[in-house]
Design a protein around this nucleic acid. Structure first.
Lengths: 226, 226
DNA sequence: AATATAAGAGTGTTTTTTACTTTTAAAAAT
DNA sequence: ATTTTTAAAAGTAAAAAACACTCTTATATT
């Protein structure tokens, strides 16, 4: 069953826009390229696609190699394939965005690979077409988050509605009304309220919430209007 | 600048879900595969990606080769890359959906290539993962059409609001209120009313409309609620 | 015990969506 | 020539969603 087809073969890569959330700000991982062309330039995390893996598996592998984490949340963005997008060779790249908590789990990424978390506004110039990838990824994330509640992979295991709202404000770069956000989000019925409270932000204390186990609900209701 | 990177290379293909519109029904092109594996099975239109073209260019080329048309409306759906998706070899395929008017322009496609237009409901079983591709394409089309008015590439050059509404009804497989549809669509301000009328559907006659030149408006307003 | 804070609940207005009804233009039938 | 018929086109009214606020509450801090 091998080599049935005779045709030119291509280098295929994956590039990951790794989103994180810290200090009420959406952040992205970039690191300085080790090889030429573009050595030293800021780059997204990427790697080659092997014969024995799908592009999703390749992305998971690449992320595993540099973080040690498994089963990272991933979403395909799109294929970037202009013939001269990488001056080194003709490389077809599939872009993904990923969610990762900033903190312990990304240690390897940060310490061994010299990766940096950049806030969206203070991002340096990126190599090749990586800025395009990021723009498209943000677009896609915003669209997704507008009709599905996202955040379980970015926020701590339990979180307050303030934290969730701040995350949404970071994603959309605009303020959201606390009362209306609460009403909307709780109305979806996909959060479970815990009995414990976070007392750090107010005197009254805000209840912690958790996402009900994944795959529940998410019935295409609109969360915010774009 | 060539061969800078040493890594396994992959067969990369494009597969196109070609949508057409006829008899108030959304249709799709399928044809019977010429080669093994899967010879004789119904398949989407596809082809290989060459070294000197992007995946978009490859899709345009493939569509040009079998229809003679140029500048076909194309939208990337996603990458399908399960290692065993094609039993002949490991093939990474980028799926696109395309819009094409049913009639003259697809003659070559139909006559030389033995392609068939199938209504969505009477589609035969498709080879490999082509049904998945179609499902994802429909999903993406529906989402797009919900906040951007689509159809200029599917409808005749000038069309009535009835025709446009019927197209939307075909896309969403549900009825839409005529008055509300008209109000919404005209409110977008991207259609230009002509002075001529179509008299075939009613005694009163329905004005023809045209899309204002492409790229106008399309300001993310919601057209229909999913 | 009083104060201050943000959580949490509530309220009224505006906008959008949805479901209908009425009027209109013009061909076809009487 | 008038009436009938058809779907277009315009209009209306109720329901739902989105939005902009205010008020009350729990509790750490003063």
């Amino acid at each position: 069953m091998e080599q049935t087809y005779q045709h030119a073969r291509q280098l295929v890569a994956v590039d990951c826009i790794i989103f994180g959330y810290e200090d009420a700000d959406l952040k992205v991982v970039a690191f300085q390229r080790k090889l030429n062309p573009g050595r030293g330039a800021w780059s997204l995390v990427g790697g080659w696609v092997n014969h024995d893996e799908s592009v999703e598996e390749a992305a998971q592998r690449v992320l595993h190699e540099i973080t040690g984490l498994e089963n990272i949340f991933l979403e395909q963005v799109e294929v970037f394939s202009k013939i001269d997008r990488d001056p080194g060779d003709r490389v077809i790249s599939v872009a993904f965005y990923a969610f990762m908590r900033i903190g312990q789990q990304d240690k390897k990424l940060v310490e061994e690979y010299g990766a940096h978390w950049f806030s969206l506004r203070e991002l340096p110039e990126l190599v090749f077409d990586h800025q395009d990838m990021l723009d498209k990824a943000l677009d896609k994330l915003r669209r997704k988050a507008s009709y599905q509640l996202v955040g379980s992979e970015l926020l701590p295991d339990r979180f307050t509605l303030l934290q969730l709202r701040k995350l949404y404000e970071a994603i959309y770069q605009r303020e959201l009304d606390p009362g209306n956000f609460r009403k909307k989000v709780l109305g979806l019925g996909i959060l479970r309220q815990l009995s414990s409270k976070d007392m750090s932000e107010s005197k009254k204390g805000a209840y912690y919430f958790k996402f009900k186990k994944a795959g529940t609900g998410q019935n295409m209701e609109r969360i915010i209007k774009l």
